[in-house]
Design a protein around this nucleic acid. Sequence first.
DNA 1: TCACTATATTCCGATGCAGTAAATCAACCT
DNA 2: AGGTTGATTTACTGCATCGGAATATAGTGA
Lengths: 108, 108
Amino acid sequence: MMKMTPELLAVIAERFKAFAEPARLQVLYELKSGERTVSDLVTATGLGQANLSKHLQQLHAAGVVARRKEGLFTYYTLADRDVLKMCDLMCGRLEKETTARRKALSAG
Amino acid sequence: MMKMTPELLAVIAERFKAFAEPARLQVLYELKSGERTVSDLVTATGLGQANLSKHLQQLHAAGVVARRKEGLFTYYTLADRDVLKMCDLMCGRLEKETTARRKALSAG
DNA sequence: TCACTATATTCCGATGCAGTAAATCAACCT
DNA sequence: AGGTTGATTTACTGCATCGGAATATAGTGA
């Protein structure tokens, strides 16, 4: 485990922040099935183009997505396998809680 | 994989948000070594007491930490093993990037 | 060069959140 | 009951950020 300097804490927090927005999670969810252009994502998510573009910049700056330009289009993809692992881990935590809560309700 | 409703996206984002703040990460880092009272955390982190208390409420609301009252004291702990897994996964991503960048620099 | 399309960027209003100080609450003690 | 201590809550301020509209940039083709 690395030493926890304030700078490192800030960087890690920054990374988590990339995941901490419904719009951005929606984008990641779309990218699960593969590469998408910005327009693809606009129609898939219903987000405004300018807004989406800004979210994509943030995701890219945080190393969450990769991009590739081809002519007029910019193709975005998930940066690596760990991105999905993060989401799955978080969803797993949620599921555990909800099933636990369900159990508690039926038991109580 | 569950269906991605706007509500679910909001909940997941909320969870990530709990990790997306240096002060809160610092708290989690402290709790790695075990149970701590609020005062313990105040001295360990250097955060103001009221401020810290609010961060602890957020972490608790997000299911990241558990608490236990004993007399005047409130003891906080990490809620489960997955909390650390989240952090380790994120740090792993960071390390990969920095080593990759180092390699690119020495190669280029 | 001029138009057209796909993205990115800038500007702005509204909302959210971190931090601090002061007030409040809760448990303990004499 | 009154006082003390640990913790939470409230009120407030300043700063960040989301979303939308308008504008700018860049690549394409006539």
